[in-house]
Amino acid sequence: MKERVVLDLSKLPLHALGPASVTWWGTLGFMLIEGTGFALVIAVYLYLMSLAPIWPLNAQPPNLLAGTVMTVVLIASVVPNIMLSRWAEHQDLRKVRIGMVVMSVLGIVPLIIRVFEFATLNIKWDSNAYGSVVWTLLGLHTTHIITDLIDTLVLTALMFTRHGDNLRRYGDVQDNAMYWNFVVAAWLPIYGCIYWLARI
């Protein structure tokens, strides 16, 4: 096969950021998978609710306090998260380091609140199907907070090493920030389900 050079790529950047990058799309792909998972568990909740004569089944609705605090904290965390993403876009190492530390803390706080949430659900997972589905919803979301937190912690550590000041790391920070926004966004319908649908 004779090859004829018709295009010179030598001026292209050596790494792509945001929607131009491969990892950005990969992250989006996994968000789509997990989003589908969340949607399905919510659908299970609604399905069981539609079958039940009363809802919640033989239980008080969950106490509002912990869940609402959780919602406020998660929504508030979006602000520094978006700022962090901007700093990463501008490759400002110092600010990115600060932002990563802040986001690590904002990943740990929800886990503490989550303990209180489980404690005030007013039902156990093995009491009935209602208990099973609220524990699963809350548990599924908790695993997402944990995985994103671990990712954030590892990235924070990386930012303080020689690997930190690198376009590729800034891209990772942006993708991680995007994923955290997804974790927050996924919480809102779950919050509505667990705390407010049970009160209708």
């Binding site: 299970v44 069981l48 079958l51 089944l57 997972w125 199907a129 099973s132």
Partner: peptide
């Protein structure tokens, strides 16, 4: 959900406790 029903006693598919077989 099936493993949870089998391992930790959830009731997703148990009609006696508000679960549903057709789910």
């Amino acid at each position: 959900s099936l493993i949870l029903d089998r391992l930790v006693g959830t009731h997703f598919f148990n009609p006696a406790e508000g679960g549903d077989v057709l789910l």
